[in-house]
Design a protein around this nucleic acid. Structure first.
Length: 408
RNA sequence: GUGGCCGUAGCUCAGUCUGGUUAGAGCGCCGGGUUGUGGUCCCGGAGGCCGCGGGUUCGAAUCCCGUCGGUCACCCCA
């Protein structure tokens, strides 16, 4: 037998499970629009250099997780591992001046060993607010993500918040941190000792060293004046908006471009390996890092795979309002009825022609539609039979009453 | 990149330790019982290179080696 399995670490997302995905994407569109974010679509592949410079050479993503290949023209191409760098590139490419609020959704790619909630091709929704330094933009982004998860009914969502400070404050802080880490070098795990050389701040995130790091100097305790007042403003605005959050001084994100605000949405009810539903932060230096002018910005990204996991298969609503069954010889009438109902906005389906009534009812049952409409000889009297599938009760009604009966 | 577990029907699995006629079950699917009624019941049917390759043997789903795939965790992250 031929193997039709998709490539390692990728999935076909098929019904009925895909219903949850559809719900997530719809909810995202709704909330992004409510918050005033336009739609952005960028290529799924970009020049490798964009991510190398944007995401950062010291990040795990760039060092060993990129899908990179050479195209027919000898260019080094990379399947996008995240959406922020492409967004900033698109902003610079578009020639737009001033604030830009965009939202996107689509597949991202990272070459890793797959496991639960972590795939080589995974899906994110994201939003970015460019050319804004106002902490209100940070707060609105965080609120957007929170409202979205709330509306989906994701249980146990916790917003974790931190500030990583401005680039100008970074060298002084890093010196303090390095010194502190050096003094305890022997107590750190092997990974942390390596991370220390590459990007000392990320050591703070090491779970194995967590007890030791409880007293480590944190970026939020060494903020410059501007970053400190911005952080205070973000917290105040979130409180006013009614978005609960917890401060997490050792929260450090894996991508190198973050400055000031950093946050994560954590699903406290999931296993440790999948708790990170999404996150984001401010990236005031990113546009310059990829060779553009200074464009401060803040954004968020969330993993649809993780959100669906956290929702725990809660979607139970029927995908159809009605299923139509045709008795022998009534197929044309039945199909005409289906067309009419669809035009009126109903979600209706019908089986292939030539199937026995019994087989059609079986299909109706499987479709989970709450009612079945039977088109039979009563059609000639302007009537059809409607059957409630839950309890098997049925009655004959006038054709014109259908719309009303379906409560459309 | 590291480690554990697992590959037999569409799905879940038994059979593997102790090699031996045509490889099984449940569920699902299709048809019939009921030529206009599903979900229950009864009957029938389709559907298997036992992951792949090599080796041992008179004989391999079963033993050995390799390989590929799946899965979970570490790392990291979404």
């Amino acid at each position: 037998m031929a193997s039709f399995a998709p490539p390692k670490g990728t999935d076909d997302i098929v019904p009925p499970a895909s219903a949850a995905w559809r719900a997530v994407l719809r909810e995202w569109d709704t909330w992004a629009e409510r918050f005033g974010f336009g739609l952005l679509m960028t290529p799924v592949f970009e020049a490798t250099e964009l991510f190398a410079r944007g995401v950062g050479e010291s990040s795990e993503v760039v060092r060993k997780q990129m899908y990179t290949f050479e195209d027919g023209g000898g260019r080094s191409i990379t399947l996008r591992p995240e959406g922020t760098a492409p967004t900033v590139r698109a902003y610079l490419a578009s020639g737009v001046q001033g604030a830009w609020k965009v939202a996107y959704s689509g597949p991202m790619f990272r070459y890793e060993r797959p496991q639960k909630g972590r795939r080589r091709q995974f899906y994110q929704v994201g939003a970015e607010h460019l050319d804004s330094e106002d902490p209100a933009a940070d707060a609105a982004i965080i609120e957007l993500g929170y409202r979205f998860l709330e509306a989906l009914g994701v249980p146990g969502v916790e917003v974790q918040l931190n500030s990583l400070g401005d680039p100008e404050d970074r060298p002084a802080y890093l010196t303090i941190l390095r010194t502190w880490l050096e003094e305890r070098r022997d107590e750190l795990c092997e990974d942390s000792r390596q991370t220390m050389e590459l990007n000392p701040m990320r050591v703070l995130d090491c779970k194995a060293c967590a007890p030791l790091l409880a007293d480590a100097p944190t970026p939020v305790a060494h903020l410059g004046e501007d970053a400190a007042s911005a952080y205070a403003a973000v917290k105040e605005l979130l409180t006013e908006a009614g978005v609960p959050f917890v401060e997490e001084p050792r929260l450090v994100r894996g991508l190198d471009y973050y400055t000031r605000t950093a946050f994560e949405y954590v699903a406290t009810e999931l296993d440790a390996a999948q708790t990170a539903l999404g996150g984001g932060g401010r990236y005031d230096g990113l546009a310059e890092a990829i060779g553009g002018r200074r464009v401060p910005g803040v954004g968020l990204a969330m993993g649809i795979d993780r959100i669906v996991l956290a929702m725990g298969g809660t979607q139970a609503t029927s995908p159809l309002d009605a299923f139509v069954v045709a008795t022998p010889g009534r197929d044309r009438h039945a199909r005409g009825l289906v067309s009419r109902l669809r035009l009126e906005g109903a979600r209706v389906d019908i089986a292939d022609r030539g199937r026995s009534v019994k087989a059609q009812f079986k299909a109706a049952d499987r479709s989970a539609a709450p009612v079945t409409l039977v088109v039979g000889d009563e059609w000639d009297q302007g009537e059809i039979t409607v059957r409630r599938m839950a309890d098997g009760t049925q009655e004959t009604i006038g054709i014109e009453e259908i719309t009303q009966w379906l409560e459309l």
